[in-house]
Nucleic acid binder design. Structure first.
Lengths: 345, 345
DNA sequence: CTGAAAGCGCTTACAG
DNA sequence: CTGAAAGCGCTTACAG
C-alpha cells in the first residue's frame, strides 16, 4: 500500500498585509497607511511596519489594491501593427516611461483588424486600465477608438480624426524642410524627390516642406515622382527611370531610407558617385539601412522615442488628474548628416 | 452667489454582477455560475442571466475575479531587447495566441539590464501573473530568472542554462544543414562560409550543420571566416577579402541576411553574377533585406512565429494544470529559395 | 438546481 | 495617531 504522492504545496503562501500588521503589532488600517506614506502615522509605527514588511518580503497585491481603489495601475498599449518600424520605437519608449512610474503595460496588437481592435479595447476597459495609448504606423488620421471613454486616451504617430482627442505626431513638413535646407546649404542645385505613396499624408507633408524651402529660394524640384511606394525596389526603379530619361540631378531626396537605398543602387550601377556627383537623403534614420549603405546615409529622424515618451508622460499626468490637452501636437524631425551628402564627415 | 460647478460624474457606473443577478431575479452565486458555464444551473435560468448581462452590457471585473480566484488571467512577456528582430516576431505570435485565449499580456523590456530584469520579475510576480515567458535574442544559454518560481516559466529563443527549465529554441544545426544541402543539390562545389561572431552559439551551430553535410559527401568548405560580425559591413569586407585573395567559389553561405547583403555588394562591385557565377544564401529570412536585394535572397527561416506560438501554448496548458516539460525543445529551420541561388524561380 | 455566507487582500471614511 | 468596520466585485464550498 503506497502512501499517496501528495505534491508539495503548489501555492507558496505569500505574506499579506494582515501578516505584516500582526508582525508589527498594529491594525490592518495602520499598516496600510504606513506602507502607503499616508498622513497620520507616527514615525516609530511607520518604521516598525516597514521593518515587518521587509522581513516578510511583503509585496502588495495589486489586484486587491486595484479592486478597492477602483483602478488598476496599468495602461493599455494598442497598436495596429507591432511589426512596424514606427510603432516599435514608440512602444519601447512608452513602456520605458511607464515602467519607471510603477505602471504595468498591457500590449495589444490589433494587426490592422478592426474587429480585433474592438475586442482589445473592451478587454482593456474590462481590466480597468488607467489609460490607453493608441499607436499607428501612418500619419494619416484615424477613426477615434471611442468617445467619452472612461479613461484618458492619447493617439501617437497616427492622429485621431476627432480634434477633441490628444494626438502626438511627427511634423513631416518640417522633416521635408530640413532635408531640402541641408541640400541647399551644401550647395546642391538640382534636386529630385523620390516619394512614397502620394496618397499618404507623410509623403504629401514632406513634399510640402520641400516645396516651401525651394520656393523661398526661388527654385523648384527638377524631378518628382508622380506616385510611389515605400520599398527599396521602388527606389531603384524610379531612380533608374529618372536617370535614364537624362534628367541631370545633383541631389536626390527620398521619402524613406529604403527608397534611398534603392536609389543608391541605381546610382552605383551607373557609376555615379555619392556624394561627389549626387547627394542622397533618406527618411526614418533606420539604423539597419543607414549604417549599412556605402556611403552611410544622411537621413531625417522623426524622433519616435520622443513621441512615445511624451505620450506616456501626458497619460501619466492625466491619470494623476491633470486634464489631457486637446488637438494635434507636432514633434519636430531632426536631420542626421552622414556620408551620402557630405564628404567631410 | 454662484452655484458650485459640480463636474459630471467622473466614474460612469459599470454594471456589476449584482446588478445582473437582480435584473435576472437570481442570487449572486447563481448569476456567477450561469455566466461561467458552471455545472448545476438550469437552462432557463442560465439564459435569463445571460440576457440580463447582455442588456446591462455587463463585463466581469477581472481584478475581482483575480482576487478571489488567486490568479490574474495575465502573463508576463519578459524580453531582453524589444528592438531585436528575433524577439519581436516571437512576441507577436505569443501575444496573438494569448489574446485568443482571453489572457492579457504584460510587456516588459529589460533592455539587457539585469537590475531592470529583476525589477520586472518581481513586478510581474506581484501582479500575480499566471505565467512568464522569457524571450532573448541569442541562442546562447542564459541564467534562469529564478528557481521554484510560483508560476510556470518558458524560455524562448535564448534557452535557460538549467536543464529543468523548458526552453524552446531554433535548431541552427539543421539550419546550416538545409543551406548546405540546397547548395549541393543545385550543383555548387566550392562553398564559402561567412560567419557571424564565432563565439556565438548560432554561428557555431550553423558551422556544425554545414560541416556535417559537406563531410557526408566527402568535401569541405573552400573558405570560412575565422571570426565575424552580424553586420552588412562585415559581409562586404569579408567577401571582398576572400575574393581578393583569389579564392574561387561558386557559393557563399552567410550567417545572416545582412552579411549576405554585404556579400552581394562585394560581388557586384567585381561584376560577379549572382546566381550564375556564385550562389548566395542568407540567414533569418528577414523580409526587408531578402526582398530588397537584387536578385532576391535565398535564406533560412528560423520559424520564430512558431517558437512564439508553441511557447504560448505550452504556458497556456501549464496554467491549466498540465505540468511543463523540461529541457530544450529544438524547432527546425526552413529553407526559402529565391533568385540568389537559382534562376528558375 | 438555487442561495446565504464567507473569503480573496486591500483602502478608506469614520470614530475614538 | 490608531483601529474597527464596511466595501471593492467576484467565486466557491456548503446547505437546502
Amino acid at each position: 500500500m503506497k502512501a499517496p504522492l501528495t505534491p508539495p504545496d503548489q501555492k507558496p503562501k505569500v505574506a499579506t498585509l494582515e501578516d505584516v500588521a500582526r508582525a508589527a503589532g498594529v491594525s490592518l488600517a495602520t499598516a496600510s497607511k504606513a506602507l502607503n506614506g499616508r498622513d497620520r502615522v507616527s514615525d516609530t509605527t511607520r518604521s516598525r511596519v516597514e521593518d515587518a514588511a521587509r522581513t516578510l518580503s511583503y509585496v502588495r497585491n495589486p489586484m486587491a489594491k486595484g479592486l478597492s481603489e477602483g483602478r488598476s495601475g496599468t495602461v493599455g498599449l494598442l497598436t495596429s501593427d507591432l511589426e512596424g518600424r514606427f510603432s516599435l520605437p514608440i512602444l519601447m519608449a512608452a513602456e520605458d516611461s511607464f515602467g519607471a512610474g510603477q505602471i504595468s503595460v498591457f500590449l495589444c496588437d490589433a494587426r490592422g483588424d478592426a474587429i480585433r481592435e474592438r475586442h482589445y479595447i473592451s478587454a482593456l476597459l474590462a481590466r480597468r486600465v488607467d489609460a490607453i495609448m493608441v499607436v499607428g504606423s501612418k500619419t494619416d488620421h484615424r477613426q477615434p477608438i471611442g468617445r467619452d471613454l472612461p479613461v484618458p486616451v492619447v493617439y501617437v504617430y497616427t492622429p485621431s480624426r476627432d480634434p477633441r482627442d490628444l494626438s502626438i505626431t511627427p511634423d513631416n513638413v518640417v522633416g521635408g524642410r530640413l532635408a531640402a535646407e541641408h541640400l541647399l546649404a551644401t550647395g546642391r542645385k538640382r534636386i529630385a524627390h523620390l516619394t512614397g505613396p502620394r496618397t499618404e499624408r507623410a509623403a504629401a507633408d514632406r513634399a510640402i516642406g520641400i516645396g516651401q524651402v525651394l520656393a523661398e529660394t526661388g527654385t523648384s524640384l527638377v524631378y518628382e515622382t508622380g506616385y510611389g511606394e515605400w520599398s527599396e525596389r521602388w527606389g531603384r526603379s524610379s531612380c533608374a527611370m529618372m536617370l535614364d530619361q537624362g534628367i541631370a540631378v545633383d541631389a536626390i531626396l527620398c521619402d524613406s531610407d529604403q527608397i534611398a537605398r534603392g536609389a543608391l543602387d541605381a546610382l552605383r550601377e551607373r557609376s555615379i558617385r555619392v556624394p561627389e556627383d549626387v547627394a542622397v537623403v533618406g527618411f526614418d534614420n533606420w539604423d539597419v539601412i543607414v549604417e549599412g549603405t556605402h556611403p552611410a546615409l544622411t537621413s531625417i529622424d522623426m524622433n519616435l522615442e520622443l513621441l512615445g515618451r511624451s505620450a506616456a508622460e501626458k497619460l501619466f499626468a492625466a491619470i494623476g488628474g491633470k486634464p489631457l490637452a486637446q488637438g494635434v501636437e507636432l514633434v519636430d524631425c531632426r536631420l542626421v548628416v552622414r556620408g551620402s551628402t557630405t564628404q567631410t564627415i
